[in-house]
Nucleic acid binder design. Structure first.
Lengths: 197, 197, 197, 197
DNA sequence: AATGAATGAGCGTTCATTCAT
DNA sequence: TATGAATGAACGCTCATTCAT
């Protein structure tokens, strides 16, 4: 009988522990030895569970995508008005700022290597982006894709600013402004349609 | 005396040619040999002008910051209304998308290494961010720093989306929406102040 | 007691299946994992039957020696004249060319490692060489050891040529020539002795 | 100005020093570190002159082939009778036994890896075999290719026996026998032709 | 100023082997 | 008996950097 280890479960465990390591140093700069150390295993064991650094990174990305969307959806359940929802989203992002900054690091890193290398084309990655879009559509009740991508971009941009240690940018403050601007814009649009109709 | 001028001038020339190389592969992944090849010099020559890879990278960042701000300011001279200015800014960013994507790559890379290493704290980098802020203040005529950072963040976020090959996001379209939202928001605010005052 | 029989029998089975694996890749290049896979067992099981790679290899050599000599002797039973026997031997070698090429690979590999390492001195190996010599003496009816070694060397050399993909060398053709040369030589020698005596 | 080193010449020098190293341990067993040590250079320098272990090995083979044939030809110049020539060849081989044993090691090793890997198909290797054949034809004055290959195979086989530490086999003795057998065979053949004609 | 040869620590990865189950 | 997870030294190879020319 072999050692009793749930291979796939342990694999997932290791994977999730890699998140910080890759985010802090970047794909190229982190070494498999450092990762192994960070996971408290030997390099041999690391390679027992992942065939290469590249695959480890790709699977980490997929894994984070998967978890990410579940987390975000759970947060926005049952909230009523758009203002409230945006406020809650803003607070959520501010609370998890560190996490999302790391997430940005990973994504940018991934894209950079995807550009110049032979990584599989990040199909899971793209699928998740679509599911993010759907989640915003569903939970914020916004139809217009341009607005959805506007919010998306703003979130990414805020994280980039924070990542750059720009203390002048406050996520909640910016979300508050977004809320007001969006409200003003939608109101105006509605009144225009009414007066035109 | 004339020698010095040549030396520094050649140095600048080399520096600017490094932009693409660092952006495409990232600080850790690009090698000094690859850089030297890209510049059509030997590694020895490269080290003659720059004491180390790290310093080369840091000076590249400073250099790009410097040039960047001059370019952006020149573009926005003499435009009248806020709408027009935002439209022009949007078009300018769309036109130079590739450049700004690379710029994002470099900045994120820089911050990542600054976090985990012994880089000098990027004082020039921070100074430039302040000058960007000033430029937006001056050329767009916006006072409210929250709005300025909102625009800033949006620009970064748009570039991140484009960098991720998100073809659903159009920079000009998003800027057009920004313009409308901002106008609606400012109008509403103004009318509120008027009715209140 | 019956257990022991099973163990040793299974051990022999595994051993014989290793022949191709070692011959195709060589001692250093083949890995214990590849061998285990080739035998359809786990590495653990492989180590249960053999204490190390080196011992496995050495025992394989002994085993092949043992079997080899039985096979060769069986083939040459009851043949009459020297010419016939050489012809049959030639055909036999040609038919089993692939096997003997692999055998050459193993022997050369073994000697190389014996030269440079701490292998036990291949006593079984040497013993078998002696028994080969005896077999040629008995079955071909040749007394002169120089001629015996001549034939021996020729066989090895033919296999080396074939191993090097030298298609110009035909084993049966060469054996036919050997037969003629040997006959002519022995006849001449006999006639010289007769005329001298 | 760069360091004054004749790159290609130094490369050849290193190459020739690799002969013993590869022969003693075999392609798979010898490490690049060991080779570098044997050559008194760093691994970095080794890789400066050879792009990979495989290429190093292949080029070594080519190089040895080239030198080998020149050496052999020089030895057999100006000798008269077949007997004399065979005797000299035998002595030459006996004298250089160690060298030719190593050569056998390399060739067998090469063929084994060629079988299982992606080595370039040893075109130079094959070319040299042809030139060996031509050399025997020219210098021994033998026309019949079957006899040429017979001698060839015998030489290989003798080296294999010696490589296996078979002290019972004497190269000069075997060559003496070859000489006698060949003479007897050719005489008989001639007399048959005469009596038939 | 400019070259490219030289270095050796360190990279991603593999391996024979051990051992808990 | 049989498994395969675990180890860490060692592999082929690369890298930033130095230095003789």
């Amino acid at each position: 009988m072999p050692k009793i280890v749930d291979h796939d479960q342990y694999r997932k465990e290791l994977l999730s522990k890699c998140f910080d390591l890759f985010a802090q140093k970047g794909y190229s700069a982190i070494t498999m030895r450092q990762i192994a150390e960070g996971l408290n295993v030997s390099t041999g064991t690391l390679y027992h569970y992942f065939p290469s650094k590249q695959v480890l990174f790709e699977q980490l990305l997929e894994d984070v995508c998967e978890q990410d969307i579940l987390m975000a959806q759970a947060e926005l359940e049952g909230i009523q008005t758009l203002q409230e929802r945006l406020e809650i989203l803003g607070k959520f992002l501010a609370k998890n700022e560190d996490y999302y900054i790391k997430w940005i690091y990973l994504q940018v890193d991934f894209c950079q290597h995807q550009d110049s290398k032979d990584m599989q084309d990040g199909i899971a990655f793209k699928r998740t982006v679509q599911r993010y879009e759907q989640a915003i559509h569903d939970t914020l009740g916004i139809q217009d894709p341009v607005i959805i991508w506007f919010i998306f971009s703003l979130v990414d941009g805020l994280m980039v600013e924070r990542l750059m240690k720009n203390k002048a940018v406050s996520i909640t403050e910016q979300f508050s402004l977004l809320s007001k601007m969006l409200t003003a814009y939608l109101e105006k649009k509605l009144s225009n349609q009414t007066s035109n109709g």
